[in-house]
Design a protein around this nucleic acid. Sequence first.
RNA 1: GCCGAUGUAGCUCAGUGGUAGAGCACUCCCUUGGUAAGGGAAAGGUCGUCGGUCCAAUUCCGACCAUCGGCUCCA
Length: 577
Amino acid sequence: MASEQSTGGRIENIRHSLAHLLAAAVLKKYPKAKLGIGPVIENGFYYDFDLPEPLTPEDLKDFEREMRKMIGAKLLFSGEEVTAAVATKRMKGQKYKLELIKDFSKEDQKLTIYKTGDVFEDLCRGGHVADTSEINAEGFKLDSIAGAYWKGSEKNPQLQRIYGLAFANKNELEAFLKMREEAQKRDHRKLGKELQLFELVDEVGPGLPLFYPKGAILRRIVENYITELQESRGYQPIWIPHITKGELYKISGHLDKYDAMYPPMKLKDEADYYIKPMNCPHFMMLYKAQQHSYKELPVRWTCTTTNYRHEKSGELSGLTRVRSLTQDDCHVFARPDQIEPEINVMLDMIEEVYKKFGFNNFWVRISTRDPKNKDKYIGDEKVWQESEEALTRLIQKRGWKHEIGVGEAAFYGPKLDFIFKDVIGRDWQLSTIQLDMNLPKRFDLEYTDTDGSKKAPVVIHRAILGSTERFLGILIEHYGGAFPAWLAPVQVKIIPISEKHMAYAEKIKKELVGCRVEIASENETLGKKIRSAEKEKVPFLAIVGDKEMESGEVSLREHGGKDHGSVSVEKLKSLIK
RNA sequence: GCCGAUGUAGCUCAGUGGUAGAGCACUCCCUUGGUAAGGGAAAGGUCGUCGGUCCAAUUCCGACCAUCGGCUCCA
């Protein structure tokens, strides 16, 4: 079958039909090709093939040419419902299609075969144009080749996937390509180097970024902001070490579950130690080491600390997927009746943070139990039910865009994930709030209730930034490297017009105490120095020459060219804050 | 980890079976300039690493490492 159902607008039909034309073109060149699936996706389509040799970009040109020929030939799309026996016969030799026929028959799904003129037929649910004259031959482009596992499973053979872009016409296609090109200019990996924020060095290791002063300042500003916000909401900092006995992870159950843990290291003759890949167990042990009364709950602890995970090499990318990740981790130990108010406080903080950074485009996934499969989950039935309702209610009350992920909860509790959509339309998971009814049990956590009995608290895990590294990556792309003044590693660049004005520049710098200021001291023309500072994306340029020395002010230029005229140092300070 | 592509100076990139080149940046000299590139000179590379073929390898072949586009995964 060549598709997910695509009954929607015309563009889906065009994209889906193009997928069929691509398959036809590939079959023409490789008659023995085995076809996988070819669905419509955002901005286009793809089709998976099992081929005798790797494809090259030149092949894509050939396929495009062939597809355009077919478009010009005004081929008709027609479908018919068939029995499994007929489908099996018609798809003879197509082993993946035959597998699908079996799968669908088991599920009692109807089978349909669609023909494209007389050049191609495919097991497919339909959703096509009537004939190829509806397709604009200049509105599509074969985009890239990639490997993809059959049915998305690592255990299955890997097929070659051809991605195509498709739009109603050439203008729309070009607009998309242009937008993508612009987005690539904002790539945090490129900007991270250009703006001297961070570096990935072979000798240090993949996924282990090093931060230059400017990047480190940016990190610190963001982390301090979160730390202060948390402490203003009653969270208390704790601190934990970076290596720990394996025993701790036996208690938590992580030891045999995660192969991304680095192998243990032997400290002399002592037990095996691990570099910590997560913080929860440490929080649990610290809680457990003291006794707790219902009166002191909720206990709200937080720690911004780095974890080390052996993420698979092919998954690493810039700052967004790393092996050293710093979490703004927080665990709240609460009574069941405190779950809702505690989560509400977390939502307040998330709202405040997103507003501060201008992240308007986000949505929330509320992951709940699979009601058909309740045995899968541990924890108190009543707590599950009430907290799932509370999560949904709280999100709805704020009017935030959300989806219920039925059956997507962890076995130990429901969760909220906050997903931010960036300028290129990619989704990034930022904040997460998870209820945990498992770890308190495994660690035998308790508090003394009003009646003197010992009860297990509920733990709420929470991170707002997610990881500092990934957050910075997203932040760099979000602002295209042109940070607002409160975040900018350098807030003001003072540009003396000539060497005569250096002393005055130094004087202004002193007056801007508390601000992050640099002086452009290089022996260059004014135009050159402005150009350099603009490329560094410094928010404010303070130009000083004879006129300014006389007035005691600076000529202020904002990043991008906006002219503020002559302003006093005090005025400049107020603009920075 | 898997499929594919890529790896030449700090950066962006040319180029070649006979041990390499541009622009920008860096250093020095001249210039002291009013809102996005003033002029000149010098310096800078084991052509990702290791092996193989060859009289000769940066170039051809292999392995490895890293990066990129995807897939898979993400406590």
